[in-house]
Amino acid sequence: MQLAVLILEDERPVREALARDLGHFGGHVRIEVAEDVPDAWAVIDELDRDGDRLALVLADHRLPGTSGVDFLVLLLDDPRTVHTRKVLVTGQADQQDTIRAVNDAGLDRYIPKPWNPDELRSVVRDQLTDHVIEHRLDPLPHLQALDAARVMPLLRTRGDR
């Protein structure tokens, strides 16, 4: 089982830049990109088939046809993604959207564009760590994508073998 991060962004250069900035995580977590909401669902189906777990979604706010917030709200209705951490990466979101994202979609973080790559990575690391801790997942396969110091207590109760 791999943890997966989904980048939902309609603009190709931005999508590529996000994926590249998260390249460090490659090999430790699965990075997937989607350009629109239907493709995002296709990715979720594929993750499910592969037995991987969507731990984090980075969604743009402005998407063709629907808003990123709407997608994040929908994630709550799917058992495969109900526990997925949600981050909005956007250059613009009015207060209304932000409030809705926090209240209705359980938004975990908000990254303004343009982003600082280190900050982006740190947010992703934190969110993945939160996800692992919250669901008491085995951190060892993903340890390099996580904040190791924070997940160490999970290992304490593990016992020798």
Partner: peptide
């Protein structure tokens, strides 16, 4: 303390 728990504790010290 169990070896694993000790490792976890000490890594929390060592990771920084």
């Amino acid at each position: 303390v169990s070896n694993t728990a000790t490792t976890a504790t000490m890594f929390a010290v060592v990771i920084p």
